[in-house]
Design a protein around this nucleic acid. Structure first.
Lengths: 332, 332
DNA sequence: CTGAAAGCGCTAACAG
DNA sequence: CTGTTAGCGCTTTCAG
């Protein structure tokens, strides 16, 4: 039975012309109720479904949005993708998901592929290579999340108050008595981490603690790598607190330090970032800075839809969502 | 500069006909090297990119594959999605990702949307509502993963040796001295969990331990829910071992039991399933049954590509990938 | 209110 | 080897 049935078949069945069918399906304006009924009956009877490819060719709209992100298995990006997709789905827009794997070259390929596919808009979490932003045509609706492109680009941007998060985390540690505070951060020069670092530095300054560059430990957000880094420095540097720029880093650190015999939080206190689901269920549970991922995701989706429907929105805006500290067992 | 340039422009620039351009771009057969050069030069000069929508309309191929899965934030599905996408990308096939959220109705919408989009094939992880499988047209290449549809459907299926996994986990606990072994399983009637349960039962039988239905604890794969379930039963049922059908369940259980004062593994030994990255870094690290997610993902992608290129492959096959036990601290 | 006709950009016979 | 032609399925003037 798999013969694809087209508008032509519906038209014949309903005894009207193709254009009338099209009219009924699209807006229903300028059509008698009677013809409407005839068409609708025929549509049902034949189980007709419009061919969106043909429609796309004609209208130059695809009802699809591309999402490029570094790694879907990172729980932050995973949740983000989910909330974006959820919202787009409400508007019958499909999501084309692309993992750049933090690789600018793959990212470039994906951008081109998505443009070729004529996506109506693009939501973009950069691999950190700003040049790829130049691939976007002027008139393509684009929303950038999380990793801020350099300032001179006129582009919509959404993220959390990362600096404030770093400040809150560090302040919490200081007020709990820590004086020698490590910061664990991504090795990449990517804005959220840098802003968290700025927050960390600002807190130290406010409490008159000297900033020491050797207290910044760089590692991929990878459990194994952070373990190796911790093993390498734990007996070279003296520290009583850790601000981990991501919960994954916090988990790797806690695990490694526990195995080395340190007590958390008695010997070393730790604050993470992101509030991934496991943070609450880790042993010990992890004090962390929560981001409102759902809000970021929904806002991104809403914004891209708005941009698609109304391309001329003038000066691009930025949006920053509040973060807050959740106190758990990894700090006193 | 954003005027979309088409094959016509290239043809004019190169001084040839549109069909010649098409020929050069597609296979290059039956064209002089000279014309080839002319065309290629024009393509480069104009920075031409083919319109895949138009091509799709004409060829009835979209070079895209749909992936429907229950929840991208579940690390098993996330990794699966990533490995599928990776492989498809090698073949220049785009992935349309859809989260059904374990909801048959959303799932149905997505199936229809993907069919409307004329995806070339579909990779499908069911929400557990088999009727949705009937929505697939006979001639659509489909690969089902993880959750096996009822046997009478002629459909390609890929998963792990779940029963064997359940057996290995339970056997390990028994050989470590456990006699009262809980099984934590998804509340859904979904095949992987049921097969793990069969493995659990088979192991008990082989070691002459009675199966007691009250030792099967059902919970969503959700940290909070499993916590509540454990709290409810821990002092009603006596147990010295737990086989958790998913690492997430294992983590929720360990955390809850630790808080209650039980020592893991001294008082209670636990084996999980999946080998998610955190299993290795949990406190204590978790003995688990590893699935070869990458292999499953790559196989699915390869299979769907094969089916797309060669629709008539006859009787549908099933593929089961080996699992193995990784010994860590949550068992002795 | 409805139908005819053109055309979105591309590919695939079919001639030559 | 290359050009002409038709048409994929739909929307959108333009007449009527």
């Amino acid at each position: 039975m798999s013969v694809k049935i087209s508008m032509k078949d519906v038209a014949k069945e309903a005894g009207v012309s193709v254009s009338t069918v099209s009219r009924v399906l699209n807006n229903g304006k300028y059509v008698t109720d009677e013809t409407k009924n005839k068409v609708n009956t025929a549509v049902k009877k034949l189980n007709y479904r419009p061919n969106v490819i043909a429609r796309g060719l004609r209208t130059q709209k695809t009802n699809s949005v591309g999402l490029i992100l570094p790694d879907i298995t990172n729980e932050f990006f995973g949740k983000l993708a989910k909330s974006i997709e959820e919202k787009l789905n409400e508007h019958n827009i499909n999501l084309l998901l692309c993992n750049s794997n933090e690789n600018p070259k793959i990212e470039k390929n994906y951008i081109e592929a998505l443009l070729d596919k004529s996506v109506d808009g693009l939501i973009f979490i950069s691999s950190g290579f700003d040049e790829n932003l130049d691939l976007f045509p002027e008139d393509l609706p684009v929303v950038v999340i999380d990793r801020r492109p350099s300032a001179d680009r006129n582009i919509y941007f959404i993220s959390s108050e990362n600096k404030k998060g770093g400040y809150l985390a560090t302040k919490h540690l200081i007020e709990n008595g820590c004086r020698d505070i490590l910061m664990l951060k991504d090795e990449k020069l990517v804005s959220p981490m840098n802003e968290r670092l700025l927050g960390y530095q600002a807190a130290l300054r406010d409490y008159n603690i000297d900033f020491r560059p050797e207290y910044i430990i760089k590692s991929k957000i990878d459990l194994k790598e952070i373990k190796e880094k911790i093993l390498k420095i734990h007996n070279k540097i003296k520290f009583d607190g850790i601000f981990a720029g991501a919960d994954r880093l916090a988990i790797g650190a806690i695990r490694t330090l526990s195995k080395l015999g340190y007590q958390i939080p008695a010997d070393i206190q730790i604050v993470g970032f992101d509030n991934i689901p496991f943070a609450k269920y880790y042993n010990p549970s992890i004090t962390t800075i929560a981001q409102q991922i759902d809000k970021i995701g929904h806002k991104s989706a809403e914004l891209i839809i708005e941009l698609i429907n109304n391309k001329n929105m003038g000066q691009a805006d930025s949006f920053y969502f509040p973060v807050y500290l959740i106190k758990r067992e990894s700090t006193t």
